[in-house]
Nucleic acid binder design. Structure first.
Lengths: 154, 154
DNA sequence: ATTGGTTTGACAATGCGTTGTCAAAGTCGT
DNA sequence: ACGACTTTGACAACGCATTGTCAAACCAAT
Protein backbone atom coordinates (compact mmCIF):
# COMPACT_ATOMS: atom_id res chain seq x y z
CA UNK A 1 0.00 0.00 0.00
CA UNK A 2 1.31 3.42 -0.97
CA UNK A 3 2.08 5.68 1.94
CA UNK A 4 1.39 8.91 0.20
CA UNK A 5 -2.14 8.54 -1.05
CA UNK A 6 -5.46 7.27 0.20
CA UNK A 7 -6.91 4.04 -1.08
CA UNK A 8 -10.48 4.29 -2.31
CA UNK A 9 -11.78 2.78 0.91
CA UNK A 10 -9.37 4.91 2.92
CA UNK A 11 -10.74 8.08 1.41
CA UNK A 12 -14.32 6.99 2.07
CA UNK A 13 -13.51 6.07 5.66
CA UNK A 14 -11.80 9.42 6.18
CA UNK A 15 -14.98 11.21 5.11
CA UNK A 16 -16.99 8.88 7.34
CA UNK A 17 -14.78 9.64 10.33
CA UNK A 18 -15.21 13.37 9.96
CA UNK A 19 -18.98 12.92 9.88
CA UNK A 20 -18.86 10.64 12.91
CA UNK A 21 -17.08 13.39 14.84
CA UNK A 22 -19.69 15.93 13.86
CA UNK A 23 -22.62 13.62 14.54
CA UNK A 24 -21.21 12.71 17.92
CA UNK A 25 -21.17 16.34 18.97
CA UNK A 26 -24.75 16.83 17.87
CA UNK A 27 -25.94 13.65 19.55
CA UNK A 28 -24.25 14.60 22.79
CA UNK A 29 -25.96 17.97 22.68
CA UNK A 30 -29.35 16.55 21.77
CA UNK A 31 -29.10 13.89 24.44
CA UNK A 32 -28.20 16.41 27.10
CA UNK A 33 -31.16 18.57 26.19
CA UNK A 34 -33.53 15.63 26.01
CA UNK A 35 -32.97 14.45 29.58
CA UNK A 36 -31.93 17.72 31.20
CA UNK A 37 -35.36 18.13 32.79
CA UNK A 38 -34.83 14.83 34.60
CA UNK A 39 -31.58 16.07 36.12
CA UNK A 40 -29.62 13.80 33.78
CA UNK A 41 -26.85 14.26 31.23
CA UNK A 42 -25.73 11.94 28.44
CA UNK A 43 -22.99 10.51 30.64
CA UNK A 44 -25.33 9.95 33.60
CA UNK A 45 -27.93 8.41 31.34
CA UNK A 46 -25.44 5.96 29.88
CA UNK A 47 -24.46 4.76 33.34
CA UNK A 48 -28.09 4.34 34.38
CA UNK A 49 -28.58 2.25 31.25
CA UNK A 50 -25.64 0.04 32.11
CA UNK A 51 -27.00 -0.49 35.62
CA UNK A 52 -30.49 -1.19 34.37
CA UNK A 53 -29.30 -3.79 31.89
CA UNK A 54 -26.92 -5.59 34.22
CA UNK A 55 -28.09 -9.02 35.30
CA UNK A 56 -26.95 -8.48 38.86
CA UNK A 57 -25.26 -5.80 40.97
CA UNK A 58 -21.64 -5.22 39.96
CA UNK A 59 -18.80 -2.96 41.04
CA UNK A 60 -17.87 0.36 39.48
CA UNK A 61 -14.76 -1.13 37.92
CA UNK A 62 -16.75 -3.96 36.38
CA UNK A 63 -19.18 -1.55 34.74
CA UNK A 64 -16.35 0.66 33.49
CA UNK A 65 -14.68 -2.35 31.85
CA UNK A 66 -18.01 -3.40 30.39
CA UNK A 67 -18.59 0.07 28.92
CA UNK A 68 -15.06 0.38 27.60
CA UNK A 69 -14.28 3.52 29.58
CA UNK A 70 -12.06 4.27 32.54
CA UNK A 71 -12.92 3.57 36.14
CA UNK A 72 -12.39 7.13 37.25
CA UNK A 73 -15.02 8.69 35.04
CA UNK A 74 -17.66 6.20 36.09
CA UNK A 75 -16.66 6.56 39.73
CA UNK A 76 -17.17 10.31 39.80
CA UNK A 77 -20.64 10.12 38.28
CA UNK A 78 -21.63 7.14 40.41
CA UNK A 79 -20.72 9.08 43.54
CA UNK A 80 -22.82 12.02 42.42
CA UNK A 81 -25.81 9.85 41.55
CA UNK A 82 -25.49 8.08 44.87
CA UNK A 83 -25.61 11.40 46.71
CA UNK A 84 -28.78 12.25 44.82
CA UNK A 85 -30.44 8.97 45.77
CA UNK A 86 -30.66 7.74 42.18
CA UNK A 87 -28.34 4.81 42.74
CA UNK A 88 -27.24 2.94 45.82
CA UNK A 89 -23.95 1.38 46.90
CA UNK A 90 -24.44 -1.98 48.55
CA UNK A 91 -21.74 -3.65 50.64
CA UNK A 92 -19.96 -6.41 48.75
CA UNK A 93 -19.36 -9.58 50.74
CA UNK A 94 -16.66 -10.56 48.23
CA UNK A 95 -14.68 -7.33 48.48
CA UNK A 96 -14.69 -4.81 51.29
CA UNK A 97 -13.91 -1.82 49.07
CA UNK A 98 -15.64 -2.65 45.80
CA UNK A 99 -19.24 -1.80 46.58
CA UNK A 100 -22.03 -3.09 44.37
CA UNK A 101 -23.92 -0.46 42.42
CA UNK A 102 -27.69 -0.70 41.92
CA UNK A 103 -30.52 1.57 40.87
CA UNK A 104 -32.83 2.77 43.61
CA UNK A 105 -36.56 2.78 42.87
CA UNK A 106 -36.19 6.49 42.24
CA UNK A 107 -33.37 5.75 39.81
CA UNK A 108 -35.43 3.12 38.05
CA UNK A 109 -38.20 5.66 37.62
CA UNK A 110 -35.85 8.32 36.24
CA UNK A 111 -34.41 5.83 33.77
CA UNK A 112 -37.83 4.84 32.51
CA UNK A 113 -38.75 8.48 32.09
CA UNK A 114 -35.61 9.00 30.03
CA UNK A 115 -36.57 6.12 27.74
CA UNK A 116 -40.07 7.54 27.42
CA UNK A 117 -38.47 10.74 26.10
CA UNK A 118 -35.99 8.95 23.84
CA UNK A 119 -38.51 6.76 22.00
CA UNK A 120 -40.50 9.49 20.24
CA UNK A 121 -37.32 11.48 19.72
CA UNK A 122 -35.50 8.68 17.90
CA UNK A 123 -38.60 7.54 16.03
CA UNK A 124 -38.97 11.04 14.68
CA UNK A 125 -35.26 11.33 13.89
CA UNK A 126 -35.16 8.09 11.94
CA UNK A 127 -38.40 8.50 10.05
CA UNK A 128 -38.16 7.64 6.38
CA UNK A 129 -34.72 6.07 6.66
CA UNK A 130 -34.30 2.61 5.14
CA UNK A 131 -33.71 0.04 7.85
CA UNK A 132 -31.24 -1.76 5.59
CA UNK A 133 -29.14 1.36 5.24
CA UNK A 134 -29.17 1.99 8.98
CA UNK A 135 -28.11 -1.59 9.61
CA UNK A 136 -25.31 -1.33 7.06
CA UNK A 137 -24.14 1.87 8.72
CA UNK A 138 -24.18 0.25 12.11
CA UNK A 139 -22.20 -2.73 10.87
CA UNK A 140 -19.54 -0.53 9.32
CA UNK A 141 -19.29 1.60 12.47
CA UNK A 142 -19.16 -1.46 14.65
CA UNK A 143 -16.47 -3.10 12.54
CA UNK A 144 -14.27 -0.03 12.64
CA UNK A 145 -14.74 0.13 16.40
CA UNK A 146 -13.67 -3.48 16.79
CA UNK A 147 -10.60 -2.98 14.62
CA UNK A 148 -9.56 0.03 16.68
CA UNK A 149 -10.18 -1.90 19.86
CA UNK A 150 -7.91 -4.75 18.94
CA UNK A 151 -5.34 -2.36 17.49
CA UNK A 152 -5.15 -0.37 20.72
CA UNK A 153 -4.65 -3.50 22.79
CA UNK A 154 -1.53 -4.51 20.93
CA UNK B 1 -46.49 7.10 15.97
CA UNK B 2 -46.80 5.28 19.26
CA UNK B 3 -44.96 6.95 22.10
CA UNK B 4 -44.20 3.85 24.04
CA UNK B 5 -42.30 1.69 21.58
CA UNK B 6 -39.56 2.07 19.02
CA UNK B 7 -40.34 1.96 15.34
CA UNK B 8 -38.22 -0.48 13.36
CA UNK B 9 -36.02 2.35 12.10
CA UNK B 10 -35.97 3.91 15.56
CA UNK B 11 -34.61 0.73 17.08
CA UNK B 12 -31.94 0.44 14.40
CA UNK B 13 -30.94 4.08 14.83
CA UNK B 14 -30.74 3.63 18.60
CA UNK B 15 -28.27 0.78 18.10
CA UNK B 16 -26.38 2.90 15.59
CA UNK B 17 -26.16 5.83 18.02
CA UNK B 18 -24.66 3.67 20.74
CA UNK B 19 -22.02 2.43 18.32
CA UNK B 20 -21.30 5.97 17.15
CA UNK B 21 -20.59 6.96 20.76
CA UNK B 22 -18.24 4.03 21.20
CA UNK B 23 -16.49 4.55 17.87
CA UNK B 24 -16.04 8.24 18.60
CA UNK B 25 -14.19 7.45 21.79
CA UNK B 26 -11.90 5.02 20.01
CA UNK B 27 -11.24 7.41 17.14
CA UNK B 28 -10.42 10.23 19.52
CA UNK B 29 -7.97 7.99 21.30
CA UNK B 30 -6.41 6.66 18.11
CA UNK B 31 -6.14 10.16 16.65
CA UNK B 32 -4.48 11.50 19.78
CA UNK B 33 -1.92 8.70 19.70
CA UNK B 34 -1.30 9.04 16.00
CA UNK B 35 -0.24 12.68 16.10
CA UNK B 36 1.05 12.88 19.68
CA UNK B 37 4.65 12.76 18.47
CA UNK B 38 4.01 15.93 16.47
CA UNK B 39 2.81 17.78 19.56
CA UNK B 40 -0.76 17.61 18.31
CA UNK B 41 -4.06 16.33 19.65
CA UNK B 42 -7.26 15.51 17.78
CA UNK B 43 -8.68 18.94 18.59
CA UNK B 44 -5.53 20.76 17.48
CA UNK B 45 -5.36 18.68 14.33
CA UNK B 46 -8.93 19.51 13.42
CA UNK B 47 -8.24 23.23 13.73
CA UNK B 48 -5.10 22.97 11.61
CA UNK B 49 -7.19 21.21 8.99
CA UNK B 50 -9.76 23.98 9.01
CA UNK B 51 -7.03 26.59 8.58
CA UNK B 52 -5.31 24.63 5.83
CA UNK B 53 -8.52 24.24 3.84
CA UNK B 54 -9.72 27.82 4.19
CA UNK B 55 -9.49 29.85 1.01
CA UNK B 56 -8.23 32.91 2.86
CA UNK B 57 -7.41 34.00 6.41
CA UNK B 58 -10.47 34.21 8.64
CA UNK B 59 -11.21 35.07 12.26
CA UNK B 60 -11.53 32.60 15.13
CA UNK B 61 -15.28 33.14 15.28
CA UNK B 62 -15.63 32.46 11.56
CA UNK B 63 -13.79 29.15 11.81
CA UNK B 64 -15.80 28.14 14.87
CA UNK B 65 -19.04 28.77 13.01
CA UNK B 66 -17.71 26.87 10.02
CA UNK B 67 -16.77 23.89 12.19
CA UNK B 68 -20.05 23.93 14.09
CA UNK B 69 -18.39 24.38 17.49
CA UNK B 70 -18.19 27.23 19.95
CA UNK B 71 -15.86 30.19 19.67
CA UNK B 72 -14.35 29.67 23.09
CA UNK B 73 -13.01 26.19 22.44
CA UNK B 74 -11.37 27.25 19.21
CA UNK B 75 -10.03 30.40 20.84
CA UNK B 76 -8.25 28.52 23.60
CA UNK B 77 -6.51 26.15 21.23
CA UNK B 78 -5.69 28.90 18.73
CA UNK B 79 -3.97 30.88 21.48
CA UNK B 80 -1.92 27.85 22.46
CA UNK B 81 -0.92 27.08 18.89
CA UNK B 82 -0.01 30.73 18.35
CA UNK B 83 2.29 30.62 21.37
CA UNK B 84 3.98 27.58 19.89
CA UNK B 85 4.54 29.26 16.54
CA UNK B 86 2.31 26.85 14.66
CA UNK B 87 -0.22 29.47 13.67
CA UNK B 88 -0.06 33.22 13.43
CA UNK B 89 -2.54 36.01 14.20
CA UNK B 90 -2.51 38.71 11.56
CA UNK B 91 -4.04 42.14 12.14
CA UNK B 92 -7.41 42.51 10.45
CA UNK B 93 -7.96 45.82 8.64
CA UNK B 94 -11.71 45.19 8.81
CA UNK B 95 -11.89 44.61 12.55
CA UNK B 96 -9.44 45.76 15.19
CA UNK B 97 -10.10 42.85 17.58
CA UNK B 98 -10.89 39.94 15.26
CA UNK B 99 -7.42 38.89 14.15
CA UNK B 100 -7.01 36.68 11.10
CA UNK B 101 -5.66 33.20 11.77
CA UNK B 102 -3.17 31.56 9.41
CA UNK B 103 -0.77 28.65 9.47
CA UNK B 104 2.92 29.50 9.76
CA UNK B 105 5.33 27.56 7.57
CA UNK B 106 6.08 25.48 10.63
CA UNK B 107 2.35 24.85 11.05
CA UNK B 108 2.00 23.86 7.42
CA UNK B 109 4.80 21.36 7.87
CA UNK B 110 3.25 19.87 11.01
CA UNK B 111 -0.08 19.51 9.26
CA UNK B 112 1.47 17.72 6.32
CA UNK B 113 3.29 15.38 8.67
CA UNK B 114 -0.01 14.59 10.35
CA UNK B 115 -1.57 13.69 7.01
CA UNK B 116 1.43 11.52 6.18
CA UNK B 117 0.70 9.58 9.36
CA UNK B 118 -3.05 9.41 8.79
CA UNK B 119 -2.92 8.01 5.24
CA UNK B 120 -1.36 4.61 6.00
CA UNK B 121 -3.32 4.42 9.24
CA UNK B 122 -6.71 4.87 7.59
CA UNK B 123 -5.80 2.73 4.59
CA UNK B 124 -4.99 -0.08 6.95
CA UNK B 125 -8.11 0.48 9.03
CA UNK B 126 -10.43 0.39 6.03
CA UNK B 127 -8.82 -2.51 4.21
CA UNK B 128 -11.31 -5.02 2.86
CA UNK B 129 -14.34 -2.85 3.52
CA UNK B 130 -16.75 -2.39 0.63
CA UNK B 131 -16.69 1.18 -0.59
CA UNK B 132 -20.44 1.05 -1.18
CA UNK B 133 -21.06 0.14 2.43
CA UNK B 134 -18.80 2.89 3.69
CA UNK B 135 -20.56 5.40 1.49
CA UNK B 136 -23.96 4.23 2.70
CA UNK B 137 -22.79 4.57 6.28
CA UNK B 138 -21.51 8.05 5.64
CA UNK B 139 -24.76 9.11 4.04
CA UNK B 140 -26.81 7.82 6.95
CA UNK B 141 -24.52 9.52 9.47
CA UNK B 142 -24.55 12.73 7.50
CA UNK B 143 -28.32 12.73 7.18
CA UNK B 144 -28.80 12.23 10.90
CA UNK B 145 -26.36 15.05 11.56
CA UNK B 146 -28.27 17.42 9.30
CA UNK B 147 -31.57 16.54 10.91
CA UNK B 148 -30.15 17.23 14.35
CA UNK B 149 -28.64 20.47 13.10
CA UNK B 150 -31.93 21.87 11.84
CA UNK B 151 -33.76 20.55 14.90
CA UNK B 152 -31.40 22.32 17.28
CA UNK B 153 -31.79 25.60 15.45
CA UNK B 154 -35.53 25.72 15.98
C1' DA C 1 2.16 -17.15 56.72
C1' DT C 2 4.89 -14.31 53.70
C1' DT C 3 5.69 -12.46 49.29
C1' DG C 4 4.45 -10.43 44.96
C1' DG C 5 1.10 -9.19 41.62
C1' DT C 6 -3.67 -7.62 40.69
C1' DT C 7 -7.89 -5.19 41.59
C1' DT C 8 -10.19 -1.44 43.48
C1' DG C 9 -11.45 3.21 45.07
C1' DA C 10 -9.59 7.95 46.26
C1' DC C 11 -7.37 11.90 44.70
C1' DA C 12 -5.23 15.18 41.59
C1' DA C 13 -3.86 17.23 37.12
C1' DT C 14 -4.74 18.06 32.36
C1' DG C 15 -7.26 18.43 27.76
C1' DC C 16 -11.53 19.38 25.69
C1' DG C 17 -16.15 21.25 25.10
C1' DT C 18 -20.14 24.03 26.78
C1' DT C 19 -22.30 27.93 29.01
C1' DG C 20 -22.47 32.47 30.70
C1' DT C 21 -20.80 37.25 31.43
C1' DC C 22 -18.33 41.30 30.16
C1' DA C 23 -16.40 45.03 27.45
C1' DA C 24 -14.60 46.60 23.10
C1' DA C 25 -15.54 46.98 18.30
C1' DG C 26 -18.40 47.06 14.44
C1' DT C 27 -23.11 47.67 11.99
C1' DC C 28 -27.53 49.40 11.05
C1' DG C 29 -31.78 52.34 11.43
C1' DT C 30 -33.29 56.68 12.39
C1' DA D 1 -24.46 61.85 14.77
C1' DC D 2 -27.02 59.00 17.91
C1' DG D 3 -28.66 54.82 19.93
C1' DA D 4 -29.80 49.83 19.58
C1' DC D 5 -28.21 45.61 18.07
C1' DT D 6 -24.66 42.28 16.74
C1' DT D 7 -20.07 40.46 16.56
C1' DT D 8 -15.85 39.40 18.74
C1' DG D 9 -12.29 38.17 22.13
C1' DA D 10 -11.28 37.65 27.23
C1' DC D 11 -12.36 35.42 31.27
C1' DA D 12 -14.42 32.17 34.42
C1' DA D 13 -17.03 28.06 35.86
C1' DC D 14 -18.59 23.57 35.04
C1' DG D 15 -19.13 18.65 32.96
C1' DC D 16 -16.70 15.01 30.96
C1' DA D 17 -12.76 11.91 29.75
C1' DT D 18 -7.94 10.56 30.21
C1' DT D 19 -3.72 9.81 32.75
C1' DG D 20 -1.09 9.06 36.72
C1' DT D 21 -0.22 8.06 41.70
C1' DC D 22 -1.36 6.08 46.06
C1' DA D 23 -2.99 2.90 49.57
C1' DA D 24 -6.23 -0.64 50.88
C1' DA D 25 -7.95 -5.05 49.75
C1' DC D 26 -7.79 -9.31 47.41
C1' DC D 27 -5.44 -13.39 45.38
C1' DA D 28 -2.00 -16.80 43.98
C1' DA D 29 2.47 -19.05 44.52
C1' DT D 30 5.69 -20.71 47.51
Amino acid sequence: MADEKWSEAGEAVTALILDVFRLNGRLQLAGDRLVAELGLTSARWQILGALAQADKPESVAWHARNMGVHRQGVQRIVNELANEGIIELLPNPQHKRAHLVVLTSKGQKVYEEAIALQVPWVNDLSEGLAVDDITTAQEVISLLRERLLTASNS
